[in-house]
């Protein structure tokens, strides 16, 4: 397939996944900030989405202090923030538009109508239905486009590149979410009840609360949360599962130049599949996750070079939210 087409499929899926992840993260933040807590801690809570997305600098260029409504506005509707949900859904649609002939009409129509709804989203609805309803909508639309992708696209390169985009973005997001939350939650020592809510919200933000219960049928402990989200190969948003998908999709699109990229992805996937928690905590969770995010970024760069060939004069739709 055309390199440019592959590039658009890849970014279409990344933007869709990013919009969903942002919605999940903000949703959980909303709930966390409703718990009884000191004011400074509440503020700290609202710094989290900015740090996870690496958008704190952007935000402070515009606003002096962290105010929940502004963070929400900035992360959801701000068209000038390249990683806002608004921009991501637009980016997903523009990338899809550029290759609409390659996508199934069902997929194109799904992404197009998601964008049309986002563009026309009335703020009144936002106030009336509560922002929670909006986040539900974003998640639902993301589920829908992913489902349509899986249900209608031929298992050929456009599908593989879309999947690569999805799982690289998701791996990156799960790692960052875990990193930031872990720091935040383990450092402070609130009472047990609050602790429970904090961890359960984190699990819920990656649709892992029920999975946790099933896997451990026991109290929620930070180490187990880390284990579930890093090493559990059955957990759809775990790093292990994401990297296994990245590797198998790379195998499917293999070309003469991609051997080393495939090897690195395979190495990372195997390390997760056969790794154990002790080693990770010996290294330090933060160090481990930082290293992981770097390796994901390395893979993204290598995939761009091996397959997507940056063509002069070509600009991908809105620039991706800068990592770090």
């Amino acid at each position: 397939m055309l390199s440019r087409t592959a590039d658009h499929c890849y970014w279409m899926a990344r933007y869709t996944e990013r919009a969903e992840n942002t919605a999940r993260m903000l949703d959980v933040n909303m709930r966390l900030s409703l718990l009884p807590q000191p004011e400074d801690r509440r503020r700290q809570t609202w710094m989290v989405p900015l740090s996870i997305s690496g958008l704190a600098d952007n935000y402070f260029e515009r606003y002096k202090e962290v105010i929940p409504e502004r963070v929400l506005e900035f992360m959801v509707f701000d068209a000038t923030n390249p990683s806002s949900i608004y921009s991501c859904l637009r980016g997903a649609r523009e990338n899809a538009h550029a290759v609409r002939g390659t996508l199934t009409s069902e997929l194109w129509e799904t992404l197009n109508s998601t964008w049309l709804d986002m563009r026309d989203y009335q703020r009144e609805r936002f106030v009336e239905g509560g922002i929670g309803e909006f986040f539900e909508w974003v998640k639902f639309r993301s589920h829908l486009s992913r489902g349509v992708t899986v249900a209608t696209m031929l298992r050929e390169e456009p599908f593989n590149f879309a999947r690569l985009g999805t799982f690289l973005e998701r791996a990156d997001n799960t790692a960052r979410l875990l990193d930031v939350k872990y720091e935040l939650l383990s450092v402070s020592q609130p009472d047990a009840a609050s602790d429970f809510y904090q961890w359960s919200f984190l699990l819920r933000s990656v649709s892992a609360f029920e999975a946790y219960r099933k896997a451990y049928s026991d109290l929620i402990t930070p180490r187990r949360v880390a284990e579930l989200l890093i090493l559990n190969e059955k957990m759809p948003r775990s790093l292990c599962q994401c990297m296994t998908e990245v590797h198998s999709n790379l195998v499917a699109v293999r070309n003469a130049a991609s051997g080393e990229t495939e090897r690195r992805a395979g190495e990372l996937a195997s390390a997760l599949r056969f790794g154990n928690l002790e080693d990770i905590f010996d290294l330090g969770l933060h160090n481990y996750l930082t290293r992981f995010v770097e390796r994901v970024a390395d893979l993204s760069g290598r995939i761009a070079n091996d397959f997507l060939v940056p063509v002069s004069g070509h600009e991908a739709a809105p620039v991706a939210g800068k990592v770090e």
Binding site: M1, R4, V99, V311, G313
Partner: peptide
């Protein structure tokens, strides 16, 4: 539309 219906690549000059 035509590229999709014919099952062929839709290219731009830069491709």
């Amino acid at each position: 539309f035509l590229a999709q219906q014919m099952g062929v690549e839709l290219v731009e000059g830069q491709d």
